[in-house]
């Protein structure tokens, strides 16, 4: 099994981190992974994005042209990558920054106000964790427990409060996707 993903948004929204957490967790679950970011001036143009591949077999091309899963944290990202998502694929849209969502047939959409929800949880920074929660619920790419363990070992002693917020955001995302 091979899943190809693109996560995209404004620089600072945490799109690249979505990729990193998913790649890290999938690696822990014994999968092959690759994480290929955009870099340079493109980062400032509104679509800081990362291509992630998770696969049971060796990953050949790390360049993703037609993703199975795409997260658009802002409108330029949705416009740029939305049309190339594969049939039966999943698109997660941050409704707060994507005023113009034209849904394609045959693609699964989760459209949610991620900025608003993250503020309700208590920290803007966990916006990307909600998106990961949605992907966990909708697909079997990674398990919640793997990511939770990873975050716990990373944050427990450094920032227990942020850890709790992150875990809450992932669960909120999973709820949204149900």
């Amino acid at each position: 099994m091979k899943s190809e993903m693109i996560f995209s948004g404004f620089g600072g929204q945490g799109a690249l981190a979505i990729g990193k957490f998913i790649a890290q967790s999938a690696m822990s679950e014994g999968k092959n992974v690759s994480w290929l970011p955009s870099y340079g001036p493109e980062m400032r143009g509104g679509t800081a994005n990362v291509s992630v591949v998770v696969s049971d077999t060796e990953i050949a091309s790390p360049v993703v042209s037609f993703p199975h899963i795409m997260v658009a944290l802002n409108q330029p990202s949705l416009d740029k990558f939305g049309p190339s998502v594969k049939a039966n694929g999943l698109i997660v849209v941050n409704e707060d920054l994507c005023p113009n969502v034209v849904k394609r047939d045959g693609v699964d959409y989760v459209v949610a106000p991620l900025n608003k929800i993250s503020k309700e949880i208590g920290d803007d920074k966990v916006l990307n964790m909600i998106a990961i929660g949605i992907i966990i619920e909708k697909t079997n790419i990674i398990k919640y427990d793997t990511l939770a363990d990873h975050l716990t070992s990373f944050l427990k002693d450094r920032n227990a409060e942020l850890l709790a917020l992150n875990l809450e955001a992932i669960k909120k995302g999973m709820e949204l996707a149900r």
Binding site: K20, N32, S34, P62
Partner: peptide, 10 residues
Amino acid sequence: DGLLGQMMEP
């Protein structure tokens, strides 16, 4: 090249 430099893999 830039791709291998910037890419993360296990």
